[in-house]
Design a protein around this nucleic acid. Structure first.
Length: 301
DNA sequence: GGCCAGGGGGTGT
DNA sequence: ACACCCCATGGC
């Protein structure tokens, strides 16, 4: 990785395993907007980022060296060696025994994915909202909530962007107000999440030191948080990279690769743990993106 | 353990 | 125009 500063922009070069489009469009985050091909605005970590990738050159517009190192370097997981992870996922003894051309293709074609280290509160609420919804709609709702209840983050190309509200800001919003943001039956779940966080029944600082089973158990105290939502929160905002969230797409692609028939999520989770071990979260992202991009359907099992 | 509601936009026909 | 689907969960 080579980092240079020019005209108040940071230019990142020689960065392996980094494709800004794959990183943002793989479904792990929702608070961003595409401006052009591989050019995006991201609102995250109480900062606003205008970023563009041209081949192997990644430009962080109007970003100081300090902000790059303290905010974006950890956010984009830049200090992790993804080549080692990808290579291990394909060549460990378990995956060699159950070789899959599709897993290998997923990792090769979508090898530019990185798992972002996102904000805990925003990730929790975002994945509560995500249930039974499509990505464009999730993005729209998060945008509406941010504009109505969050602080102004800044302006890029003449357009204003807003932070996702903090816990204290969102805790003041009523269930009915949340319904007006098209959250539907998830509105009381969001209210319950804010209450449990305020009462410290669920506490981020405790989860950061917990293992993934304890984390899931604590997160699932919140109404509307089941295994899928809890595992996304653990993976995307608590650095628990062993968890393997199973949604309809991952279920389909796992069934196609390893089972060739309809299979219970518990059984899929058990196999994923055996095959991918502590790198389950990475495998899940490659497989999810592969399944969605190739529109894997049930009858293709 | 299986079934179904609950909002509303996406997508295909 | 219309049916079916969606990064699920709670509650029966």
């Amino acid at each position: 990785m080579r980092i240079t500063e020019k005209d108040n922009n940071i230019i990142l070069e020689e960065m392996e395993s980094f494709d800004i489009e794959q990183i943002l469009e793989c479904g792990q985050c929702f608070h961003f907007e595409q401006l052009d091909v591989k050019e995006y605005v991201i609102v995250a970590k109480r900062h606003l980022l205008h970023i563009k990738q041209i081949n192997d050159q990644i430009i962080f517009f109007q970003t100081s060296m300090e902000t790059f190192h303290t905010v974006w370097r950890p956010y984009f997981d830049l200090d992790r060696n993804y080549n080692e992870i990808k290579s291990w996922l394909i060549t460990n003894e378990k995956t060699l025994l159950n070789r899959s051309a599709e897993l290998e293709k997923a990792i090769t074609e979508y090898g530019g994915i990185r798992i972002l280290n996102q904000d805990f509160f925003e990730t929790l609420i975002s994945f509560i909202i995500s249930q039974n919804k499509q990505i464009p709609h999730i993005k729209q709702i998060i945008n509406t909530i941010s504009i109505k209840y969050g602080d102004l983050a800044g302006e890029i190309c003449g357009k204003s962007y807003y932070h996702f509200p903090t816990l204290l800001q969102l805790a003041k919003v009523t269930e009915n107000e949340l319904r007006l943001c098209k959250t539907g039956f998830r509105a009381p779940y969001i209210v319950d999440a804010c209450e449990k966080l305020l009462k410290e029944i669920v506490l981020e600082s405790r989860l950061l030191h917990a293992d993934s089973n304890q984390t899931m158990e604590e997160l699932m105290l919140i109404k509307g948080v089941g295994i899928k939502v809890a595992s996304c929160v653990a993976l995307f905002s608590l650095s628990q990279r062993n968890v393997f969230p199973i949604d309809v797409w991952v279920k389909r692609i796992m069934e196609k690769i390893y089972f060739e028939k309809e299979t219970k999520k518990e059984e899929i989770a058990s196999l994923a743990k055996q095959l991918y071990g502590s790198f389950g979260g990475y495998a899940q992202q490659y497989l999810f993106y592969y399944a969605r991009e190739n529109n894997i359907k049930v009858d293709e099992r």
